[in-house]
């Protein structure tokens, strides 16, 4: 336990930004799947894991450069998400607890399948030398790769925002989330919107995975580390894009500051307690869509 001087406070804030970007990146796919489709996707961590493995596969067997692995992982995991949505999830809409459980089943299947195929030993993703260097600005020290993660997160958030608020597809999505029946009467196919949104959310988890595979080692169990945190971001944010951005930023910074004063694990515990108390006052989260009426 130490007091916080100005330098270490600034350091903590910068680090917090990095943590926030990681959590937000992990949470963004989850947010849109929850916010639009209303599904609590417990397999989200495994989608992240699949993103890491597809990057690994593409890199070590097809020699794809890392930067191309990121969009490629998006495509691969989005395709897997599409199959899962069509084959299972779409039958469980309106049964929120059951979707939660079924996606948990999916997460077990994916994890064990990957373990059977790739084994339990860790895999590594290679990145350009530049990415593995460190950047020193004054007293602030940050690895270049973390800056890459921040950039990708910013890009993903901007892209998602653009898609949802500036395109025809986004308009359809919003119509469906606000009033499914009315949207249907305008000829919008809700089932198709759900399918594409689910695939998109899965694909974004894939992007996160190919980056997290560099931050950490690639393991069949790597997804579980992110999924709880991602959920807290979504719950705190209330399931909207804006909510998740704020919640991710806030929790990331708080984690970093708490960690600077105490330690990493205790900070996490403290943060969780804070979220519980926050939810007690605002169960609908930071920015919740209007509740449904009876």
């Amino acid at each position: 336990m130490g007091s916080l001087d100005l330098n270490s406070l600034i350091n903590a804030l910068v680090l917090g930004l990095s943590i926030a970007s990681i959590w937000l990146l992990a949470a963004i796919g989850l947010t849109i799947i929850y916010g639009v489709v209303g599904v609590i996707n417990m397999a989200h961590g495994e989608f992240i894991m699949l993103g890491a493995y597809s990057s690994y596969l593409l890199q070590s067997y097809f020699g794809l450069p890392f930067l191309l692995c990121i969009p490629a992982s998006f495509v691969v995991v989005a395709a897997i998400g599409l199959v899962i949505e069509r084959g299972l999830i779409r039958y469980l809409y309106n049964r929120p607890l059951d979707t939660l459980l079924a996606t948990w089943g999916v997460s077990i299947v994916l994890m064990q399948a990957v373990r059977l195929i790739f084994g339990s030993d860790p895999k590594y993703l290679a990145v350009p030398a530049l990415f593995s260097s460190n950047l020193q600005i004054g007293f602030i020290n940050l690895s270049v790769f973390r800056i890459v993660v921040m950039a990708v997160t910013a890009l993903v958030v901007a892209g998602t925002w653009f898609l949802f608020y500036r395109t025809r597809f986004g308009m359809q999505v919003r119509a469906v989330t606000q009033n499914k029946e009315m949207a249907a009467s305008f000829g919008i196919n809700a089932s198709r919107v759900y399918m594409l949104t689910f695939a998109l959310g899965a694909g974004l988890a894939g992007v996160a995975g190919s980056l997290f595979g560099v931050l950490n080692i690639v393991l069949p169990t790597m997804g579980t580390a992110y999924v709880v945190q991602a959920f807290l971001v979504v719950v705190t944010g209330g399931g909207t894009l804006l909510g998740s951005v704020f919640a991710g930023g806030l929790t990331g910074e708080l984690q970093s500051i708490f960690a600077a004063v105490t330690n990493d694990t205790f900070a996490r515990f403290l943060l969780f307690l804070l979220i519980v108390v926050f939810l007690w006052f605002r169960p609908q989260g930071l920015f919740a869509p209007r509740s449904v009426r009876r």
């Binding site: 609590i40 929120p96 607890l97 959920f231 515990f269 969780f272 979220i275 519980v276 939810l279 007690w280």
Partner: peptide, 21 residues
């Protein structure tokens, strides 16, 4: 949790998060 009417999937998530904390 229940007084704040956290229920269904949200309670599931919160109990999970509490456990991991």
């Amino acid at each position: 949790m229940f007084r704040a009417r956290v229920s269904g999937p949200f309670f599931a998530i919160m109990s999970l998060a509490m456990l991991s904390a």
